[in-house]
C-alpha cells in the first residue's frame, strides 16, 4: 500500500525578479514498511521535498497524498490535524519543547489528543530507545544523541503511519548515528510505516530499502549495486 504519494509536485521560490526552481517536477511514492533514504548535495532541494510531504509548505504544482488523502490540498487547520495524527517529524535541530522533561514531551501528545496511552506502552517506547532512565531530564540536560532519541520517541509516540526524518543523525557520532538508523529501520519494518530519511552520510544508507539522489531539484532512484 502506498502511504506517501507525490504526483507531479514542484516548488518554485520567487523573490520578485528571480525564480528559483528548488524542486523540479517529481513523482515519488513510498510503500508501507519501506525505509527510503534521500541523499544529495547541500541546497539540492531535499528539505524542500520533505517539508512539502510533511505539509509544512505546499507544492507550487502537483499534489501530495498521505494514505490517499489529498493532504497538500487541505486547508492549514486540517493539515495540522492530519500531520499530528499521521506524520512523525524528526528534525536535524532538536524539536523538543525546552521546558518539558522527557516523559512530559510524550504527555503533551496526550494532552492535545485528550487520550491516554498506557504507562507500560510509554515505558516500553522509552526503554526501546534507551531513554527511560532519563525520563525526568529536561532537553538541556541530555546529550545530542539522547535528545535525538527522545525526538524519535516523540515522533513515534502517537503511532504515525509516516516518519519524516531530516538529517536525524547530524549531531551524532557515527556509533550513535548507526543506532538511530537501526531504530528507524526496525520501527519501519515492525509497524509497517513509510519512512523517509534525508542524510548526507553515505554510510548510513545500508539499512534502507531504496536510495534516492537529489541533485538540483531532480530526484532520481539510485539502483543498489
Amino acid at each position: 500500500m502506498k502511504l506517501i504519494e507525490c504526483k507531479n509536485i514542484s516548488k518554485n521560490f520567487g523573490d520578485g525578479h528571480k525564480e528559483i526552481e528548488a524542486l523540479k517536477e517529481t513523482n515519488f511514492s513510498v510503500e508501507a514498511g519501506e525505509f527510503v533514504a534521500i541523499i544529495g548535495p547541500s541546497g539540492s532541494g531535499k528539505s524542500t521535498l520533505l517539508t512539502i510531504i510533511g505539509g509544512l509548505q505546499t507544492p507550487s504544482k502537483g499534489k501530495v497524498l498521505i494514505k490517499d488523502n489529498p493532504f497538500s490540498e487541505e486547508e492549514e487547520k486540517k493539515r495540522a490535524a492530519l500531520r499530528f495524527k499521521e506524520i512523525g517529524f524528526i528534525l536535524q535541530a532538536s524539536n523538543l519543547v525546552p521546558f518539558l522533561n522527557v516523559r512530559d514531551q510524550l504527555r503533551l501528545v496526550n494532552k492535545v489528543e485528550k487520550t491516554k496511552m498506557e504507562q507500560e506502552q510509554t515505558d516500553g517506547l522509552l526503554e526501546e530507545l534507551d531513554v527511560l532512565r532519563l525520563e525526568k531530564n529536561y532537553p538541556s540536560d541530555l546529550s545530542g544523541g539522547e535528545r535525538q532519541r527522545v525526538a524519535i520517541a516523540r515522533a513515534l509516540y502517537h503511532d504515525p503511519s509516516v516518519i519524516l526524518a531530516d538529517e536525524p543523525t547530524a549531531s551524532l557520532d557515527s556509533e550513535r548515528a548507526f543506532e538511530v538508523v537501526d531504530i528507524l529501520a526496525r520501527e519501519t519494518k515492525s509497524k509497517q510505516k513509510a519512512t523517509i530519511m534525508v542524510t548526507h552520510d553515505e554510510r548510513l544508507i545500508d539499512k534502507c530499502d531504496k536510495v534516492y539522489v537529489m541533485k538540483d531539484g531532480v530526484l532520481s532512484l539510485r539502483e543498489n549495486a
Partner: peptide, 15 residues
Amino acid sequence: SLFGVMKAQGISSGY
C-alpha cells in the same frame, strides 16, 4: 520559534 516547533509536530494553533 518554540511555537513553530510545536506546530511542526502538528500541535494546533488553537491549543
